[in-house]
């Protein structure tokens, strides 16, 4: 499929954020995207990727993402399930990750249950954070990243601590099946505690994918480091980056998924 034929659905409702940054990211890469309010979303035909943005959907009432997840479940659950089964990519960022976990798409069927609990610090953590690519090649959103590569993607959440129902068993399953995508690290790439791990997540987990690798949920925001000028040190270090002029650390996520869609469909 050509880039110009691709269409991305950015699903939103009251309280979601960074939709514009997401749309800008896809536009810069030559892909058309559309904002769709959950109340207007009736089918996914014609879309090749679904993105659930971050934010505080429905005011984070009850639990982060619980209400948005319930709305999706009642409105478009079957269609979304089918969409994922057909291999189309689905991305959940921050609140979107919480929603994918609430709906059971992550860690996925037969994988046990997970939950994104309040941060250990008890406060909203909003700042640059570093993540390391842990994936061995399954996840379609990280093909353009080298293994163990460190990237800066800002975090902005109060409930991001990944808890697994059966920690030991599930963690070894996730590792074995290449479902771990990102881990929080320090600048040397080592797994470290607070503040490098902003929420106290088990085994520094920051992003997970499903068994098939086409559903990714991650707590940090790649769209907030899409351009080099979104990095806090760009004034000191300039806009040149290893990936090219004004290329930010989060850009590879979008490039990877676009490449995957163009090859697969």
């Amino acid at each position: 499929m050509k880039k110009s034929d691709m269409r991305v659905a950015i699903v939103r409702m009251e309280g979601t954020n960074c939709e514009q940054e997401l749309q800008d990211a896809f536009t810069v890469l030559g892909v058309d995207s559309k904002f769709v309010h959950i109340k207007q979303l009736k089918e996914l035909t014609g879309f090749h990727c679904v993105v659930i943005p971050g934010g505080f959907s429905a005011g984070d009432y009850v639990r982060a993402g619980a209400i948005f997840a319930s709305l999706i479940k009642t409105k478009i659950f079957k269609e979304l399930k089918e969409f994922i089964k057909e291999g189309y990519p689905v991305l959940g960022i921050c609140n979107g990750f919480q929603i994918l976990v609430e709906m059971g798409f992550l860690p996925g069927k037969g994988r046990g249950r997970a939950c994104l609990a309040p941060n250990d610090s008890g406060v909203y953590e909003c700042r640059p954070t570093l993540v390391r690519n842990e994936n061995r090649g399954k996840c379609v959103f990280t093909n353009k990243l080298k293994r163990k590569e460190i990237r800066m993607m800002p975090c902005a959440h109060a409930e991001g601590k990944i808890i697994l129902e059966e920690p030991k068993k599930m963690l070894s399953q996730l590792k074995a099946d290449d479902q771990i995508v990102f881990r929080w690290v320090d600048p040397d790439g080592k797994l470290a505690g607070y503040p490098w791990n902003p929420n106290g997540s088990l085994d520094n987990l920051a992003g997970l994918c499903n068994m098939e690798g086409n559903v990714l949920g991650l707590m940090p925001h790649p769209e907030r480091s899409f351009f080099r000028w979104q990095h806090v040190d760009w004034v000191r270090k300039g806009l040149s980056a290893p990936g090219g002029y004004n290329v930010g650390d989060g850009r590879a996520i979008f490039e990877s998924v676009i490449e995957c869609i163009s090859k697969k469909f």
Partner: peptide, 9 residues
């Protein structure tokens, strides 16, 4: 089960 509580925590 459906909304108010998350059985994991």
């Amino acid at each position: 089960q459906r909304l108010l509580a998350n059985p994991v925590i």
